[in-house]
Each structure stands twice: as C-alpha cells, then as structure tokens.
Design a protein around this nucleic acid. Sequence first.
DNA 1: TCTGGGGTCCTAGGACCC
DNA 2: TCTGGGGTCCTAGGACCC
Length: 438
Amino acid sequence: MHLDLDAFFAAVEQRDKPSLRGRPVVVGGTGGRGVVSTASYEARAFGARSAMSTVEARRVCPPGTAFLGPRFAAYKRTAEVVMAVLRELSPLVEQVSIDEAYVDLAAGGHDLTVAGVTELATGLKQTIAAATGGVTGSVGVGSSKSLAKIGSELDKPDGLTVVPVGQELAVLHPLPVRSLGGVGPATAERLAQVKVKTIGDLHRLSLIDLTSLVGQAHGTGLYRLARADDDRPVVTDREAKSVRAEETFARDLTDPVRLSTEIDALAARVGSRLQRSGTSGRTVTLKVRRYDFTTLTRSQTLAQPVDDPRQIAEVAHRLLGAVDRSGGLRLLGVGVSGLSTYVQGDLFAELLDEPATPPEEGTETEQGPGDPRPGPAVVAWHPGQDVVHPELGAGWVWGSGLNRVTVRFEGPRTAPGPVRTLAADDPGLQPADPPDWT
DNA sequence: TCTGGGGTCCTAGGACCC
DNA sequence: TCTGGGGTCCTAGGACCC
C-alpha cells in the first residue's frame, strides 16, 4: 500500500487556522526568490503548483489567497501521528518523505483480497483524518510498490485505488510514461522522440533499444516496470548517505567576507546535524550557483571523516577559493557525504555495551618508549590501525572522529559489528605493532 | 521579481592497483 | 615491434523525487 497525504503542508495550515479552510493557500518561500512547496487544491484551481516561483503563484491566484512560510515542526509532528497509525497496520512501514509511505500489508497479516484491502484502506483513511484533525490522504494498493504508488496517484485527493492482481498491465498500459517513478522531463522527452508516450508503448520497446536510449540501469528498470515486474521490498530504516545545507540569497553576493560568513553558517548547520545524528563523513562538497544560474559542485575527500563545523568550513573555504566568483553568487551549499558506517557501531555499542567511557581526569599513563603521545586536541587515529588497550586487549580502529574513536576487538575486519567507543585521547589506547599477517 | 531545499541514484573519465 | 583486463576510488555533472 502507498499513502500520499493530500496537499500536506497546506492541509496542516488549514487545519490549524480555520479561516483558511476553503480558501486558496500557498505554502513556500515568500521572498522574492521563493518557490511554492505546496498549493492547496483551491489554489491549484487557479494554476498554482509546487516548484513554481512564488511571484508567479501570486500572479495567478486571486486576492485573498494566503501565502505562508513553512512550519516544518508542525508538519513533522502531524506526519509522525500518521506514521504511528501506519505502524499499527504492519511492522514494515517505509516513510519515503514527510508525507508519503509504503506499507507491506502482507507482513501485517492482512486479508489481501480486493474486498479485504478496500475495507482496510477505507478504515485507515478515516483513522488518519480523525487522528490528524482532518488531514486526508490518497491510497493505492497493489502487488508492488510501483503499482501501489501509481494507484495512489490515480484518485486524489482523498482517494483510494486498488489494482487487483492480474489487472496490473491493464491499468498500467494506458497511462503516460511520466506516471512511472524515475521518468522525468528528460526521459519523457527521449522516449517521445521514438514515439513512446504511454507505458503500453514502452512495453513494446526491446531491452536493447531502451538501454541504448536511457542508459543501462534506468533502461532495465523501466523495462521491468512496464511489465509490472517490481520486487523492491518495503524497507523500514534507511540510513542517510549525505547531509547538505544550502541557501539562495535575496541578492547575489560578491563580498568575500559575506561569502565566508555564509560558508561558516552552512557548515555549522551541517556539522550540528551530523553530530546530532552521530555521523560523520569523509567527502565535503561545495555547491555554487552563479548569478546566471549556472551551477557547479567541487568536492574533496579527506582521510578522516569529519563532523566538526570548523573542519567542514575549512574545506569549503578552500574549495570556494578555486571557483570563479565574478558576477556574484546566487547560492552556496555545503554538504558532507560518504557518511561513516562506524557510527552505526556507536549505536551498537550503546545498545549492547556500556556507553563511551570518558577519560578520567588526571589519569597517569604509562608510555612505551617512543610511543606517540596523542595530542590534546586532534588525535589522528586512522581506520584499520592496530591498537592495544590495557583492559580491552588488542584491536583495530574502526573509525574516528574529532573527539572519539571506535575500536573493534573482535570479528572480521571489514564487516560491521560491535565496537567500543573511546575518547580519542583515552590514555589507555595505544598504537600497536601490526600482527604478522601471513 | 524567473527558477528552494533536501535528498537519492547513475554515468563517465582518470588515477591507481594487481 | 604501440597500447590487456579486471577492479576500486574520486570527482563532476545530470536526472529524478518530494
């Protein structure tokens, strides 16, 4: 099953402010360079759409239209209520965005007949509306993620479409190729050039023709989707792979001091989010949009993962120094990717074991002659390095951050597994001579 | 007063390694 | 006596999604 909440941001605003109900509401950036996040159905009647510039939306919508900045905290709270309702249906719930989720109904042990899922989904919609104070959703049910998602699109708002087993191709084939996930403007245009407009047209294309047209991975994916061949599982927890913050300025920036300040602020946002989620990453990326909207990225991969705003900013400053800023910059972004898996290990350690042990103050340590003494600020433990610890024995470094190091004392060296989190300057932790691998 | 912000995945070329 | 065949990692860009 796929659930898509209807005009979600606008619906929450209308719920919280009764005077907005029945009126056109547009949520999004309200400044000169803002775009629309969500238009209520009343606003869509006038042509307002997501991703449209707010200036354009103001032009098409009548006086009395409400233009509101987003209140993400309110949306998140409401979405959490909905997700909790879904999790009562099945242990397998995959939230794909703030307002969308898949539910594996089979894993919830439900009656999967058309009558059974229709009754279930009808009840669910009522429960959601009651629990959220009137937010509605559109539901699709089918034999795969793709079919369920297409189903939820077919009847909205507040709709329900069940695609019966055996009817998949009959439902799919008349639809435009744009209905398939992964077909955007560029792919649709390429397909149109060979007279492929509907999913039925797509079905007639050979695998060879399709992959030569849109690429290997995309081609094989679309070939299968056109045949209702989709076995992607519903996955509960997906780890984030990158974190980024970016900002479009009200006016293009040229002042190096201002640019520098903006980099610092973006790095601070990224760093604090990384630290809050207990992750860090090795690749720092700078994104630049120039006055003429040309956009480029520059990245650098470091030897050590970082989550410290100052370190992230330092790399970003360096990258910005190498790009042409003449004419002014419209946007800057700072991101960190290549997020370390060892942080999963941190969570592991806290669940299975004691939490990280901070070093005791004033602890005397014995130093072997010639052992490097870790400095007080940054200790450069590197992944794979062999270490010894007086209480924990011999191990190797799984990952390291600015102030902590995760060390494995058992298991295979490459696969994830339990780790101990230690302060990076834990006096007991010492480099070891590597074992004599044969 | 055109064109946000936060993500994911894929491709392609070059460096490097065995 | 021109230049193999794998593989991985890094960088940059593009398409797509909500």
